[in-house]
Design a protein around this nucleic acid. Structure first.
Lengths: 192, 192
DNA sequence: ATCTTCATGTAAGCAGTTACATGATTAG
DNA sequence: CTAATCATGTAACTGCTTACATGAAGAT
């Protein structure tokens, strides 16, 4: 269900076609939700059928060039309802922690190299999210600029602050993971 | 793929039947991986076909009573290989952060109530994981006791320490989420 | 000319969810 | 005698992954 709400949230900023949305959800500087191209196009058609979004077909000559989707009143309503509802938590399914749970079964140095790769990966995420947070605070992202056009200027700081705060949270969680992984490296080393 | 490795990791401690495994993966005091009953039985049969585990059928009279699965040499090998390998990180897909990203679209008090529910939920997890960590440190969980029977006593402290540490990590991450959520509540309130 | 970017699609398959179904054994 | 626990199964469906496929437009 969440991909639909993610798409609604993005389209609330401005209308986009499938290609733009694909780049956004597939992008290397990671967001909070990702989705492959093959999932986005069918989902957009589903959402149009459900009346959540509306597709504007652009024709060039005789051929379809692209379909630009915009959020409908119904879509906005659905998004706001979803945002205001507490949802049942996703079941715990943490494949890295699962791996770490059985590190006692392998050599300490092999476990250490897995942990180091994990640290590198989390630090990469931290870098990307931190940059995104800064950009949001400076109101310097494409999407936020578009979004603020439909909002009273008095609220701009608050909106940017709230969104930046989400990425501060992502950074904090990833940092907790890195700290834990470093502590684990120490534990593994002393046990040898 | 991870469910199979989770099952292998559990069965390495001692042989179990589908029902026991179901209770373990479905259990309220949450672990690091969960799975419903309907997924466990077919997966066990798949794994037996692949030679990762071996089912011992217990017959009572003419009827099948239960099938107790134990890990095979091949299963142990597969588990160790998986444990020693760095796996490509799962795509970022955080439905709560997605929700929080658009809190500016709804009333601050509705957003606050969603955050409060999130805090309660994370604190519940913290309680469960903290208890599990303590139990592991005290070598006082059913599974750990079984597992240690096949390990040299000199390593018992180290093994328990490593496993407990994983749950310390879960707690730390959940705590980071709670701290972030509390900070967000403050941000929402001051913006009004 | 050829390579990249723009733009959209399909199809097979796996993992996980929800729900239904059956029957034996054990405890109160 | 009845309810809870033990024990195993299936079937439909949704969400996501991997991979293949096509073609126009713009850049070098």
């Amino acid at each position: 269900m969440s991909l639909q709400h993610a798409l609604l949230g993005v389209l609330e900023a401005r209308p986009m076609n499938g290609y733009e949305l694909t780049r956004f959800f597939d992008a290397a500087p990671r967001w909070v939700w990702s989705a492959p191209q093959s999932q986005i196009y069918p989902t957009l058609r589903q959402m149009e059928q459900a009346g959540l979004i509306e597709g504007q077909k652009e024709i060039r000559g005789t051929r379809l060039k692209r379909t630009v989707y915009s959020i409908t009143e119904h879509g906005l309503e659905e998004l706001r309802t979803w945002l205001g509802t507490g949802h049942t938590p996703a079941p715990v399914r943490d494949s890295f922690s699962l791996q770490a749970l059985f590190f006692d079964m392998i050599d300490a140095d092999r476990a250490a190299s897995v942990l180091k790769a994990y640290i590198a990966e989390q630090e990469q995420l931290i870098t990307e999210w931190r940059a995104h947070r800064e950009a949001l605070l400076a109101k310097d992202t494409d999407l936020l600029k578009e979004r603020l056009k439909n909002r009273p200027p008095a609220e701009h700081d608050r909106i940017a602050g709230l969104k930046a705060n989400v990425f501060a949270g992502q950074v904090a969680v990833a940092q907790a993971r890195v700290d834990w992984a470093r502590e684990s490296l120490r534990l593994l080393a002393e046990g040898v």
